[in-house]
């Protein structure tokens, strides 16, 4: 059975809160996971200064996330997106990938150029994941 990094939904109706968990792929969504490595609050909260963009909070234990990625845990799509923000993996562009498969070269190059965080740590992290 595969070990996955995925979200487990908590909170109430219309007010979700997610745990970022490490769990066996076939277990129930909210069953007790192997480990809880973070949380994700998808409800945007107004910014403090009033005019800026609303913000969302993500908490993550980066070292544990790196470990689980290193031993082959597979992130689900939403978690992939979140981990990419932390610079642990390359961003996953579903649409872009499909278009690239259609040999739309221009778009493919454009996607390659886009990096969410131009950060040394991010590069390093991605290289470690690639190595492992």
């Amino acid at each position: 059975m595969v070990v996955r990094l995925r979200l487990a939904r908590f909170g109430a109706r219309n007010r979700p809160l997610y745990n970022i968990v490490v769990a066996q792929a076939r277990t129930a969504r909210n069953s007790k996971p192997m480990e809880v490595i973070g949380t994700y609050d998808p409800i945007p909260k107004p910014s403090h200064d009033g005019d800026g963009k609303p913000f969302k909070d993500i908490q993550l234990d980066v070292t544990r996330a790196k470990y689980w990625l290193g031993v082959g845990a597979q992130p689900s799509d939403p978690v992939w997106r979140l981990l990419a923000m932390f610079g642990l993996i390359e961003p996953q562009w579903k649409i872009a990938r499909i278009e690239a498969q259609r040999e739309d070269k221009a778009v493919y190059e454009k996607v390659q150029k886009v990096k969410i965080i131009p950060d040394a740590a991010a590069k390093q992290a991605s290289s470690t994941t690639a190595n492992s």
């Binding site: 908590f10 909170g11 109430a12 809160l17 745990n19 968990v21 007790k32 480990e35 809880v36 490595i37 973070g38 949380t39 945007p44 910014s47 800026g52 963009k53 609303p54 913000f55 969302k56 909070d57 993500i58 908490q59 993550l60 234990d61 980066v62 544990r64 923000m85 932390f86 969410i116 965080i117």
Partner: peptide, 30 residues
């Protein structure tokens, strides 16, 4: 860190396993 997308600002915070996350095994009484 803060990651900005088109519509939102994601605040990334460090956490520690064991201290993060919502409850398991506690009945929801809300």
């Amino acid at each position: 860190k803060v990651v900005e997308t088109e519509r939102f600002r994601f605040r990334l915070r460090p956490a520690v396993v064991g201290q993060v996350g919502y409850r398991y095994g506690v009945p929801a009484e809300d």
